[in-house]
Amino acid sequence: MLAYVLRRIGQSVLVLLVTGLVAFSMFRFVGDPVDNMLGQERTQADVERLRDRLGLDEPFAVQYWSFLTNAARGDFGLSYRQGRPVAEIIAERLPATLELAAVSAVLAVVLGVAFGIYAAIRRGGWLANAIMTASLIGVSLPTFLIGILLIWIFSVELGWLPSYGRGEVVDLGWWSTGFLTASGLKALILPAITLGLYQMTLIMRLVRSEMMEALGQDFVRFARARGLPERAVTLRHALRNVAVPVITVTGLQLGSIIAFAIITETVFQWPGVGLLFINAVQFVDIPIMAAYLMGISVMFVGINLVVDLSYLAIDPRLRAGAGGRT
């Protein structure tokens, strides 16, 4: 089992090295950074000096290695556009995105699983049918459209909730949070719904179909025949047995919530890393793009690793299989 865990970690590192290579190649192939940084008025001496300072005349492998070691320390160099360290800029923006993503994710998982279970056990009931019909909207409407619709209804027509920005934030020194002010919380509602709706409906539909299958299994029938309370039959036996596929999809969806916050942040002018990335793309601010790419890939790889390891925690047969191969 330990060997399995180590092997999975090794694979994760390999994936990160490859994405690191992609991120690094952006510097070399998407234009010459020296051109971008120095502008029109420059001498050849300026160019040489900057090349030397940035280490751009080193061999490829050396540059890649220093990029990796710097990245591992959180150092992605200076933003071309702002001239400040990328790590500092991202650190300013990260709390906004993480708070938005966390609220969306909790919303998506809690409501998705709860509605999914309900729709499975009350199959055919009017409320279950209503939930299923409503979920079609979440699955089929694109995120930006949902965001704009919500803004139109709740900001423009009703005037209840703000249509853009984060509201007032409290600066804790290392973190700025919108959780502590009324306007911060109000500002979170619409973007969080917009960002989490698709994931919620996806999780819900998955939980429902998996649960319906599990509820027809013999061990559920036998659990009922043993006279277990319905709650134990549903949650302890059926739900646990659908945990593996549900966690797999949920994990990937959590990654997407952060990665695709870009759209929601753009619609709501949410000052997070997604918006930062979009602006960076417009200005070809490669250090920021590279850092964003690395951050997202670390996150995806990390989630995948946790998902894989959670299989072992859930299913004893896999534990035995993983142990047998050691």
Partner: peptide
Amino acid sequence: DPTSSLDPLL
């Protein structure tokens, strides 16, 4: 079928 009657995860 005892194989499917028992919950495999408990």
